[in-house]
Design a protein around this nucleic acid. Structure first.
Lengths: 191, 191
DNA sequence: CTTTTAGCTGAATAAAAATTCATCTAAATT
DNA sequence: AATTTAGATGAATTTTTATTCAGCTAAAAG
């Protein structure tokens, strides 16, 4: 027997992400995916039951990937600003580096394929940040604004940075990220 | 002769926007559009040469719609903060009220259909805001940060508000908008 | 009120895409 | 080294979707 080749799965995922970035989930066919991944169309069906299963599997993978990066190096015992900055940088770096994945999540969330469960999982992965924001409010370090909207403010800015890096081909140097962090920080910090 | 019915065009657009919101540009067929717009599939082809033409026309319309709303009531001679607040509110209200259109633009921009020209047009429509930001910097009212990134910060927050209003079914009262504006303003204002 | 013309319909056709499958490898087991 | 079994292939098939069209309808023009 010949074993399944994990590299093939990776190649399929990579092909999907690249094509969706270029042409949207709307514009891709299984043939294109196969061609991009350098394999026969039939091979796709050895690894995934059908197109829907492929989209679902990749979405799950991307969502798990986000979750695994959000709180890297985060120490809940550190001072508020330190912890917040760590998470902020984690998110922005992830969005920039794995922009294709973020885009894919966005598009697949609007497809008929993805379950509410998966959508919930993504939302849940931000919970520790909500906890931290609450702490910041308790400690009077940040403004007493509903966390739902404060998170919108924080995440929105980050998303747009990633979008611009990728669409306008801009470099986001450490310098640029720190400046942007400052904008965000000045926005949320208590008067 | 029977004249073309502008209401039909509107119905088609409305159907598209609703369906794309629900299922993504990926997930819709001409039959679905026709059904949603309460007409025969053949009728679609009286008003639009084909699917691509429909997507392109609707994208153009949505882009022009944004442009026509951005600077409503804006007076370039007013004090900086007044002008900025006007534009900020215009954008956020437009994004919330016409969220389907924003979403459609996003998706169609990732389809193989839309021209760079159209993409440029959308970008250009923000030029007066860039001008205003420059003035704010000259007058030392706001931070001396590259307008490209400052705009990312401003627009990002707005986008995410609209997204959350629509996905999480939240009301964005005047109160909420003002609070969010304050976050943005505190972020950009000079130290 | 008749004619004319263009819109409207939805079943029929064409085109495109997903999925299957007979055949052919290549890896693992004996 | 031979055998077995599952992966790999890509053309063939099925399914889905876009597009067309012959017949029908309604508005405008005369």
């Amino acid at each position: 027997m010949k074993p399944k080749d994990q590299n093939k799965v990776e190649a399929i995922y990579r092909a999907m992400l690249g094509l969706v970035r270029q042409r949207g989930l709307a514009g891709i066919t299984m043939q294109q995916v196969a061609r991009e991944a350098k394999m026969a169309t039939g091979t796709l069906y050895i690894y995934f039951k059908n197109k829907e299963a492929l989209v679902v599997a990749l979405t799950d993978k991307c969502v798990r990937h986000v979750a695994s990066n959000l709180f890297r190096n985060y120490n809940a015992d550190a001072p508020f600003k330190t912890g917040f900055a760590t998470i902020w940088m984690n998110i922005v770096r992830h969005r920039i580096e794995f922009f294709n994945e973020s885009l894919f999540i966005e598009q697949s969330f609007h497809s008929p394929f993805v379950s509410n469960e998966t959508k919930l999982a993504l939302k849940k992965s931000f919970d520790p940040l909500l906890l931290l924001l609450q702490r910041g409010k308790d400690e009077k370090i940040i403004k007493d604004v509903d966390s739902f909207w404060m998170l919108a403010f924080i995440i929105g800015g980050i998303n747009e940075i990633a979008r611009r890096v990728n669409y306008f081909n801009r470099k986001a140097s450490q310098q640029v990220l720190e400046t942007n962090f400052q904008l965000c920080w000045d926005g949320i910090k208590a008067a």
